[in-house]
Nucleic acid binder design. Structure first.
Length: 558
RNA sequence: AGGGGUGUCGCCAAGUGGUAAGGCACAAGACUUUGACUCUUGCAUGCGUAGGUUCAAAUCCUGCCACCCCUGCCA
């Protein structure tokens, strides 16, 4: 069912033009990953564009693996891609593989040969390269360019049967060796390969090139709009040549849009693989990676990623390079809405409330204070001895610091206002115990609680909490290398990785509630956390997805 | 004069001849039992640049300049 759509980007404008002029009558797209690596954030926009555009127009999008190069591909990657697409919330109409079309590709190749539009070339890779010409000089025609149709047919058949060694022969489209567009200088459309294919085994000895199979498969599959990256702009004339000369009825149109990079992140399948293979990260789902698997494990929600790319939009500018702060905004935005609020002390120091003499007392805090009307709460136990965050106390407070220091009042979240009266320290000057007195009239929820104090801090009762592990993350790439790492093809060899990119704190204390893998938590004032798969029944492991935005900047100490 | 593509605020991005949307970032303020969130306000006399056409130009024309992609039997 075709829908009328108010265009939200230039691709949809182009689609609308074709639709209203009748050149094309429906919208069908395809998501064509090569199964040669894990999907990363740079791929999300392509996924949203292909699945999303089809959806908007009431059309379909197929997942088609571009698996025409067995040297780089594997089943592991095939599986991970499906997993990631589903996680993002998209569902393909059908799954295809470029290899599904090998027979049809082959038949079109034979047709081209019969029409004198393709020929078998015996040039070696080196010779071919030499005769291609340069950016400013035309190429030289192959000596095999004018073989007879019969000879071409026979040779191509022999290539198919495996009678020639790899690299010895290719099938080339006969176009124009003098074309200013390098892609049109009799491009190779078939090559010989004897590598075992992860899916079709050793069945085929000849493999079509991307430039030949992709447009053909698009047309055969019924795709009308083939949305791809800017690097294929120069290939469009060849794409159209294949479409026009293959005899297919449905004619797909290629539309290119710009790339997106995230500043200071290592993207690019090859570079990510290198980090994994060299053990610099724990795997493709290391939370420091910007693979979808990594982001997922870190606790990022798919909605954030989709909001991010949709808000970013698309254009044709060379490359859109984004500050990570932009992505961070969307990660926080959804987490803020969905996270349950829980208190956890990551680096604790003992707090003794000297004038508190009850054994303990129940207090309650809201689970989702950010959701209006949600009244669900959970219980804490207030007591004489608590644990507070070490960083919430200063022996000598800096200006504008309004947390704990001797003489200052703060509220213990959900409980009482206390006044700091003193502290103990060890021989190294490390604070070991903080002392305070509480104001019994200020319990949250009572009238006396209306008294305002500038600071509110979180706490945990050591007698009623879970000891947990928290993993905190920083960028893998150091600030100074952030530019060097830009782009999918960046050379990351000389990059010094951040030694502090992962910090594991194993003495953290969280409230004693039931944590689960599906939910997201805000450890109040410490950031958003998600349970990691390394958790066991005895030991919960949390990943900090992201910190809270920190509006408080300590003044320079001078 | 090899070809193709792109230049609008620090980063993205609308704009399609009628007088520069929006988001992020940033700044100031309000609110706040999270220094979060939310709210309010500010943030391009300017659209790579130089000319031209027009009552009117980011939008049309011409010339420059800058950046990106292309010389795989990768995708």
């Amino acid at each position: 069912m075709l829908k009328e759509v108010e265009p939200i980007n230039f691709i949809e404008e182009e689609i609308n033009k074709d639709l209203s002029s009748g050149v094309r009558t429906y919208v069908q797209t395809r998501h064509p990953p090569e199964p040669s690596g894990y999907l990363h954030i740079g791929h999300v926009r392509n996924i949203v564009l292909n699945y999303g555009t089809a959806e908007r127009y009431g059309g379909v999008c197929n997942l088609r693996y571009d698996d025409t190069n067995p040297t780089k591909e594997s089943q592991e990657f095939v599986d991970s891609i499906q997993n990631d697409v589903l996680w993002l919330g998209y569902k393909w109409n059908k799954i295809y593989y470029a290899t599904d079309y090998f027979q049809q590709n082959y038949e079109v190749a034979v047709k081209l040969i019969k029409e004198g539009k393709a020929y078998v070339c015996d040039l070696s890779p080196e010779e071919l390269s030499k005769t291609r010409g340069t950016l400013t000089e035309p190429g030289i025609e192959s000596p095999y360019r004018n073989r007879s149709v019969e000879e071409n047919l026979k040779l191509f058949e022999e290539m198919k049967e495996g009678k020639f060694p790899a690299g010895s022969h290719t099938l080339r489209a006969k176009i124009d060796m003098a074309s200013p567009n390098m892609n049109m200088r009799d491009p190779v459309i078939y090559r010989i390969q004897y590598i075992h294919h992860h899916r079709i085994g050793d069945k085929w000895k000849i493999y079509p090139s991307y430039d030949f199979s992709h447009p053909l498969d698009d047309c055969l599959e019924g795709v009308t709009f083939s949305i791809c990256g800017p690097e294929f702009e120069d290939h469009r004339p060849l794409y159209n040549w294949v479409v026009e000369n293959s005899g297919v009825k449905n004619k797909s149109r290629q539309i290119e849009y710009n790339n997106l990079y995230l500043k200071g992140t290592i993207l690019g399948k090859r570079n990510i693989k290198k980090l994994v293979n060299e053990g610099k990260v724990s795997g493709f789902d290391d939370p420091r990676l910007f693979t979808l698997a990594g982001l997922r494990r870190r606790g990022v929600l798919p909605e954030s990623l989709k909001n991010f790319v949709n808000t970013v939009g698309i254009s044709k500018v060379n490359t859109a390079v984004f500050e990570q702060a932009y992505l961070d905004y969307f990660i926080r935005e959804t987490l803020n809405q969905k996270s349950r609020r829980v208190m956890a002390v990551l680096d604790g120091v003992k707090l003794v409330i000297t004038n508190y003499n009850k054994l303990e007392e129940e207090v309650f805090t809201k689970d989702y204070p950010q959701i209006e009307g949600n009244t669900s709460t959970h219980k804490h136990y207030f007591a004489k001895e608590l644990l507070v965050e070490r960083s919430d106390f200063m022996k000598e407070p800096l200006p504008k610091f309004h947390r704990l220091f001797v003489g200052n009042e703060v509220r213990l979240s959900g409980a009482y206002i206390i006044k700091c009266t003193g502290f103990d320290e060890d021989e190294n000057g490390n604070v070991t115990t903080i002392y305070a007195e509480y104001d019994p009239n200020t319990l949250s929820g009572t009238e006396g609680a209306n008294r305002k104090v500038k600071g509110t801090i979180h706490w945990v009762n050591p007698a009623h909490c879970k000891k947990v592990v928290c993993r905190l993350y920083e960028n893998l790439v150091m600030e100074e290398d952030s530019e060097a790492v830009e782009g999918n093809e960046a050379d990351t060899d000389g990059i010094q990785l951040n030694p502090n990119s992962k910090t594991e704190l194993s003495n953290c204390y969280a409230e004693d509630i039931d944590f689960n893998f599906e939910d997201r938590y805000q450890f109040v004032r410490n950031g958003y956390f998600a349970l990691d798969k390394d958790s066991t029944n005895d030991c919960l492991v949390f990943n900090r997805t992201i910190t809270l935005k920190d509006g408080f900047k300590l003044p320079k100490n001078n």
